[in-house]
Design a protein around this nucleic acid. Structure first.
Lengths: 198, 198, 198, 198
DNA sequence: AATGAATGAGCCTTCATTCAT
DNA sequence: AATGAATGAAGGCTCATTCAT
């Protein structure tokens, strides 16, 4: 028990923590947070539930740790954005980078999208909201027309939802991502123009 | 037992079924489907859990019945849309009516938006997906550029998410709805033009 | 509501009580007493549960009434038997008539056989035990060898169980009943002889 | 918590599983499968219901595990029987051993006898039926007269039911068992003779 | 670094029964 | 002769969590 030679349970070194996060995210994204039980996660990893508690204090903490790890690039992006001049070029760059970042953590963002209800009253609910508002504040001039503000929010939603809503359309993922990015960029650009010359 | 003079439990006749739906939707939208227990619903109504089962066969059926009742206008809208010529005016009209419909059933659509994970494996998951695809097929020319297709999908998402995502912005709801509608209309219009003259 | 012309729910006169008994016995025999709910019975009859309570005070009373009606011939048989001289011929006649009686109320006896646990703590539990002991006392000479007493009891069980246990054997039911009867008669006959000349 | 000095909850180590089986069988035999709730079992053991679920996946599995453990000797007996020549001596030996085996697991067989309805649609229903048919196939020559086949089946039923049906007769259990065994042996012997010289 | 055993709370569901109409 | 609406009790089961080892 522990390590076997048949290839199962191979590398069981110090990476258990990581493996828990991986499996948890997979299941959370697939079935939702509430529907995924610790039993299930433990079984997939072939450890006991108690083992999970050695690495994480609660179920919520597993999710928080995943979120923190995977959403760090976004925090960095926001920080970078804040330090730039609020030009159109900056905004377009932000949108472009944001799109790439989302693509790099698809399961997490799919999870956030589909589990808003569950996440709302969890710690990461607020974290996520803060990040979103951070992004928004970079893209939107607070004095802009309401309609332009909506355009920016819409751009963000387009990026978020685009990835999952287009699953039943033909075409390879990267092509679709580019199309989504273009629409989002358009929206931000229109918003910027509107703000400039009302 | 039955009628009291403090105003509680007033009209307790044939409307229990309706009252269950009302309270259920309220709680589902507030806390999520999974987090809302039948005990909670029953307590709010001051009946026993078993009473719920007199009116509905399962928890899921409560949700289905709500969804069916409240989403009927959308079904009608889609049917109307299918029967119209696929002109720009039609599409704009659709979007306008859709926005109104959504506004008339805000809690349900907020619920659908925030509980995608839970809803996915429920009966209404498929129902909803079908309606959405119905809408999409009216708005989108299947031969259109991918980017124009994305524009249409984005318009729909904008309408959906607009209602909740803009909560922290100033302004009265109706004004915001109009702004959202305008952005969505823009998107559809651009998509239509793109399809016409590539 | 009530009588329709499509042939359903035809004769709905004063026979509801009887129909309840019929359906109940059918379901009790098929699924067991505990597994059969009043809801199920009511649904099959296309009436409400409350209607059952108009005709019977409790679930148990439905069963009792069935048992009383259907087991009356056995009571009569026992009374007849008690009045006869305890000759071998009498015993054989008893066994023969008993076999016929059982065949005439197969579902009830199948039910009694398969639901001993449930029936034990119901009113009919004792009723049934009393009837069985009545039969036994006619067949068995209390001074007989233990082994002959066992033979008589075995004869009774053979009659009871024979009907269900032989289902997977070939042959038509009546032929099988005859065979069972012969074995039971043999047993009783041997028991009688043993008692005569030890 | 854990060990007390009043004798209750003494040895609480790895034997919980066994204790569950013991108590469960006791209650199942006493009150029937359906009437015995997991709460009851848990209370008797002074553990929570959830503890039962640590050891067994479902209520049914508790029963299955009991059945498998306790009916193993019968499986072995059948296997042994199949390997023997089909002589009268073998059959008599089988019957004798079977009687002993039944006596060693009285509560289980009492349970099986009294809970046929409940057991029918459980996994052990088929298991039991298979074992019984195994026994029958050893005792019965498939070409024998129907009446001799009935004799064999009757012998089995006599062994099964004998134990419980004779409770109200005087005499110690072992004496009664012997009497039952003799009757059963007689039946099998007659059946064998009949088959030989019709 | 992880297990074995268990808990307390809660969940959805079903049932026999009641009663005013 | 029967319904519509509801109840109280209970049932099987699952979950996140704990803790001694």
């Amino acid at each position: 028990m522990g390590v076997t030679m048949d290839g199962t349970k191979q590398q069981r070194r110090g990476n258990t923590r990581q493996r828990i996060q991986d499996v948890a995210l997979e299941l959370f994204a697939e079935q939702g947070y509430e529907k995924t039980s610790l039993r299930e996660i433990a079984e997939r990893l072939d450890v006991t539930k108690a083992a999970l508690y050695y690495h994480f204090k609660t179920k919520e903490e597993i999710l928080v740790s995943i979120f923190e790890d995977l959403s760090e690039p976004i925090v960095e992006l926001i920080e970078w954005g804040k330090a730039q001049p609020q030009t159109l070029e900056t905004k377009q760059e932000i949108i472009r980078r944001y799109s790439e970042t989302l693509a790099g953590a698809t399961p997490l963002f799919r999870f956030m999208q589909e589990n808003q209800a569950a996440v709302k009253e969890l710690r990461i609910g607020e974290m996520f909201r803060n990040r979103m508002m951070g992004m928004r504040d970079i893209l939107i001039d607070p004095d802009a027309d309401l309609i332009d503000q909506v355009r920016c929010v819409s751009a963000m939603f387009t990026l978020h939802a685009g990835m999952f809503a287009l699953n039943d359309l033909e075409g390879d993922p990267e092509t679709k991502r580019k199309a989504v990015l273009e629409v989002a960029t358009d929206l931000v650009t229109q918003a910027h123009r509107g703000a400039d010359s009302p």
